[in-house]
Computed example of a mutant assay.
Amino acid sequence: MTTRDSYIIENRGEALGVVTEQSSNEERFQNLTIRPILKLQNDLFVDVFKNYISKHKNDFYSYSTEKKLQFIENSIQKDIKFRNSLKG
């Protein structure tokens, strides 16, 4: 492996989830690559969503936990522009 590859893997962190010999290639990729990358980007996603609610729904913080979760889910599913910005 090159120095760059080993540096990236080192900074990505350890696998999230159990990786065994019986794990499929997809499951192994998910647990060794995708989940650690998303974990690194978690703070960024939270900040992006905080910015979104400050522009669109200032009363978000007064909602119950269940309603907050529903609002987050609906925002990502129905607001195409916001969803695409998260993907980008």
Rank of each mutant, 00 (worst) to 15 (best):
E66G: 15
F82H: 06
D79H: 07
S62Y: 10
S24P: 04
T33Y: 10
N42K: 09
N58S: 15
K39C: 00
E14F: 06
S64A: 13
Y7F: 15
N51R: 15
K68H: 07
F71S: 03
L86G: 01
G17V: 03
L69Q: 14
Q22L: 10
N84T: 04
D59A: 11
Q41T: 07
I80Q: 12
K78I: 09
P36G: 12
N74I: 01
D79Q: 06
K78T: 05
K50A: 13
I80C: 05
L69I: 08
T3W: 07
L40G: 03
F29N: 05
N58F: 08
R83S: 14
I34N: 00
S54L: 10
N31I: 01
S23I: 05
D47Y: 01
T65S: 12
L38Q: 07
S54A: 14
V18Y: 00
L32A: 04
E73V: 10
D47P: 02
V48Y: 08
N84I: 06
F29L: 14
D59W: 03
R35P: 00
D59H: 15
L38R: 12
E10D: 10
Q70K: 14
E14Y: 00
S24Y: 07
Y61P: 02
H56C: 09
H56I: 08
Q70P: 02
I37H: 06
L16H: 05
T20I: 12
I80E: 14
I9L: 08
K57I: 07
V18S: 02
F45R: 15
L44N: 15
N42A: 11
N31P: 02
F45N: 04
M1L: 15
D5P: 00
D79C: 09
N58I: 03
Q30P: 00
E21N: 08
N11P: 01
K39V: 07
R4E: 08
K87Y: 03
N58W: 03
R83L: 11
R28E: 02
K87E: 04
N51Q: 15
M1D: 09
N51E: 13
K87M: 09
G88S: 13
R4S: 14
R83V: 02
F45W: 12
L32D: 03
T2P: 03
V18T: 05
R4F: 15
K78H: 06
E21C: 05
T20W: 02
I9C: 06
G13T: 10
S64E: 11
Q41D: 13
S75F: 00
S6A: 13
G17R: 01
F82K: 09
I72V: 15
E14H: 09
Y63H: 13
H56E: 10
S24L: 03
K87L: 10
G13D: 06
S85G: 04
D59S: 09
T3I: 11
A15M: 13
F29G: 04
Q41G: 03
I8K: 14
S85I: 07
S24K: 08
I9W: 04
T33S: 13
L44C: 11
M1V: 08
N42Y: 14
N51L: 14
R35T: 00
E27N: 04
F60H: 06
G17I: 01
S75K: 01
S75E: 00
K81E: 12
Q22V: 07
E66Q: 09
I8S: 11
K78M: 09
K81G: 05
T2M: 12
Q41F: 13
L16P: 01
P36D: 01
K68Q: 05
V46A: 10
L44I: 15
Y63R: 05
S54M: 04
Y61R: 07
S54F: 08
